[in-house]
Design a binder for these strands. Sequence first.
DNA 1: CGTAATTCTGATAGCTACTGTCAAATGACA
DNA 2: TGTCATTTGACAGTAGCTATCAGAATTACG
Lengths: 196, 196
Amino acid sequence: MNRPGLRERKKIETLHRLQEEALRLFDEQGYDATTIEQIAEAAGVSPSTFYRYFPVKEDVVVQDEYDPLIVDVFESQQEGTAPLEALRAVLTALFREFTDEDIERVRRRVRMIFSVPALRARQVGQSAATERLLAQMVAQRTGRSAEELEVRHFTALVVASWTVAISAWAETDGTKDDLAANLDKCLAHLEAGAPL
Amino acid sequence: MNRPGLRERKKIETLHRLQEEALRLFDEQGYDATTIEQIAEAAGVSPSTFYRYFPVKEDVVVQDEYDPLIVDVFESQQEGTAPLEALRAVLTALFREFTDEDIERVRRRVRMIFSVPALRARQVGQSAATERLLAQMVAQRTGRSAEELEVRHFTALVVASWTVAISAWAETDGTKDDLAANLDKCLAHLEAGAPL
DNA sequence: CGTAATTCTGATAGCTACTGTCAAATGACA
DNA sequence: TGTCATTTGACAGTAGCTATCAGAATTACG
């Protein structure tokens, strides 16, 4: 069987400890003023180890593992659903799983990402990957190519919409429901052609 | 009077030489493999000087000065124009000014930006500034606040739309008119609520 | 069990992006 | 031509990041 095992558990622990200590230090002293060495020491590991968990400094905040979940939820949607509707459902379902603690951690991370340009910059790289993923899935569903202009445009708009919804929410101290509401508002606005 | 003067002219020359040599070297050897020292030497200046012109390496490709032009064109639009229409006109007017040489340089730069993650990441920072600028202008026009969710959402979508239009165009060897056409297609798609 | 194989960690050396500082060089101007 | 302001180059230093390798911890297996 493939049980967790001590090694695996230790790795996850170290990962979380690095993320937590980093977030704490960034809050206390600022992102730039905090060195990898400090984070590593606070987490009780060597700088080498930090780089094994996070290829670049930014990733200690930015890295997440939502992409596979997104794919799962999307695929579990029934065939007929319109792409925008399907993607709305994906995010809704994703957030529903979150505990209150998760939500607070997301808020902290998002706030930091949007207040530190280097983090935001890195995050966009991740979003681009997610965007390509969405394009793939949407293309498959609608029998188009993921390279088509309309498909790429659609996914870019959806991701932009999400981003605004989430960042605006993170600035407040709203609840999980407020986040969902924000998301609905943005996607509805997009679907209406973004009238002003 | 405020004539150019030798000093000013030399500065502009140095700036352009740095940009050109950098682009050439990046093409030849790749972005990461090219050092500031190489660029500086190719342009006949010291590394110190490079950093005086470009705060970070990425800027030698990413930096541009369109923002003031965008503001000018937007403000010169008549009051009644709908925001989306006004922004479409802004880009159209902006591109109209470009010579064939300009267009080719833009294409090279855009291609490089979208093929080198570090450049793309930096570019997003710039786009964010432009986005805030648009939000300001649009807010003023429509008598809203630039912090309002709908306004931010609108501008984010427009910028995302532009970005797709331009990046898709840069992948081809289309003309200036093709770029304009792409832009129209994307904005129309956005205005229609991004149907698929 | 105990030993061998595998995986993870820490230490070290080194490269490059980037910052700060100061003296020398260069153009502006009277 | 001489003085002032600006630009430049040289130097030293910090930190992010890579590559490498020996030793330690965990796992697999006889």
